[in-house]
Nucleic acid binder design. Sequence first.
DNA 1: CGGGATCCTTGGTGATACTG
DNA 2: CAGTATCACCAAGGATCCCG
Lengths: 124, 124
Amino acid sequence: MPYNVYSRNCPARLVLDRLADKWALLVIGSLREGTLRFNQLRREVDGVSQKVLSQTLKKLERDGIVARTALPTVPVTVEYALTTLGTTLAETIEHLSSWAESNMEEIQAAQARYDRRETATVAG
Amino acid sequence: MPYNVYSRNCPARLVLDRLADKWALLVIGSLREGTLRFNQLRREVDGVSQKVLSQTLKKLERDGIVARTALPTVPVTVEYALTTLGTTLAETIEHLSSWAESNMEEIQAAQARYDRRETATVAG
DNA sequence: CGGGATCCTTGGTGATACTG
DNA sequence: CAGTATCACCAAGGATCCCG
């Protein structure tokens, strides 16, 4: 193989880098249920600022993952939806999401164990 | 349902937030092939600083995804490996990774299209 | 309503030096 | 080898204001 995914200049790594974006993941997940407008998305993805949401959507649009449609209403209405490509990605992300849901208890238990060891070390 | 994954205080979202970490993803991917030592990992994950690698490993250890073993050699040898939990996560990430590989060409094409439109708009 | 421009703060990042 | 500590730096992110 010419290069592996972990190499800085591997194209797949570039894609992966972008996917490893908390907000992008959350936006894609939100759009799985259907088309949303800018402020709907903003409310759905709790904690995202307007600036970052705007940036994120622009990137995703550029990547062909999200489609942006501006309706000529007054005031303007802008709709965001997943493209076909985006839908396949959303399914993949869904796996990650459900993994997180299934294993979060185990993770929290591990964290508690780790933290107890930490303080125990300090104490004794 | 009590809350959705996109809510700031949803436990699953907390897990997801952490997973949306480029370096964590890359580290987990690297460990899929087997145990690695600190500097091996550092070489494998191209571009990671030692500070960040250290932080990342500590988080992953806390989450019970990675196991850290210090061998009493001189100088000390520290090995990192995936736990059982980590292995299941690695499989999930693999899906994401292979999605990226399969679709990166389409993404790059979309980007080129987008950029052409951009400059076209500017030009005329 | 959607989103650009601006300012300002935080924290990620790299380089360097040091310890066990 | 496997880190920790420190510093200088820059870019990402939040808050705010404003416009079409």
